[in-house]
Computed example of a mutant assay.
Amino acid sequence: MGRKDLKNRTPIGSALDTDIYKQLKEYSAETKIPISKILDMAIEQFLESTKKK
């Protein structure tokens, strides 16, 4: 069951390449953008790029 305090988000579980994760954490710390928001943007761009035209 999901967390009841999350209204507009869905928790997921996944595993990333260790080096990619380190870079992601560094970027998040430098920009002060939460990792969840970075992942939202990246996945949204990926989905847009795979849409049939």
Score class of each variant (00 low, 15 high):
residue 1 M to D: 06
residue 1 M to N: 06
residue 1 M to T: 08
residue 3 R to Q: 11
residue 4 K to L: 14
residue 4 K to P: 08
residue 5 D to T: 11
residue 6 L to V: 02
residue 7 K to G: 03
residue 8 N to W: 01
residue 8 N to S: 12
residue 8 N to R: 12
residue 8 N to V: 01
residue 9 R to M: 11
residue 10 T to P: 00
residue 10 T to W: 07
residue 10 T to Y: 10
residue 12 I to G: 00
residue 13 G to Q: 13
residue 13 G to T: 15
residue 13 G to N: 15
residue 13 G to C: 09
residue 14 S to K: 08
residue 15 A to P: 01
residue 16 L to H: 00
residue 17 D to E: 13
residue 18 T to V: 10
residue 19 D to T: 12
residue 19 D to P: 01
residue 19 D to A: 13
residue 20 I to P: 00
residue 20 I to E: 04
residue 20 I to M: 11
residue 21 Y to H: 10
residue 22 K to D: 06
residue 23 Q to I: 12
residue 23 Q to D: 12
residue 23 Q to P: 04
residue 23 Q to K: 15
residue 24 L to V: 12
residue 24 L to H: 01
residue 24 L to I: 09
residue 24 L to K: 02
residue 25 K to Q: 13
residue 25 K to L: 13
residue 25 K to M: 07
residue 25 K to Y: 03
residue 26 E to H: 07
residue 26 E to F: 04
residue 27 Y to K: 08
residue 27 Y to G: 05
residue 28 S to Y: 03
residue 28 S to A: 14
residue 28 S to D: 03
residue 31 T to D: 00
residue 31 T to V: 03
residue 31 T to G: 04
residue 31 T to M: 03
residue 33 I to Y: 01
residue 33 I to E: 11
residue 33 I to R: 14
residue 33 I to G: 00
residue 35 I to C: 02
residue 36 S to G: 01
residue 38 I to Q: 03
residue 38 I to D: 00
residue 38 I to K: 00
residue 38 I to M: 14
residue 39 L to H: 04
residue 39 L to I: 15
residue 39 L to C: 12
residue 39 L to Y: 06
residue 40 D to F: 06
residue 41 M to H: 06
residue 42 A to L: 15
residue 43 I to V: 15
residue 43 I to Q: 03
residue 43 I to N: 04
residue 43 I to A: 08
residue 43 I to T: 11
residue 44 E to K: 13
residue 45 Q to E: 14
residue 46 F to H: 11
residue 46 F to G: 05
residue 47 L to F: 01
residue 47 L to E: 07
residue 48 E to C: 04
residue 49 S to M: 15
residue 49 S to E: 15
residue 49 S to H: 12
residue 49 S to L: 12
residue 49 S to P: 03
residue 50 T to Y: 05
residue 50 T to V: 14
residue 51 K to C: 03
residue 51 K to W: 00
residue 51 K to A: 11
residue 52 K to N: 10
residue 53 K to I: 10
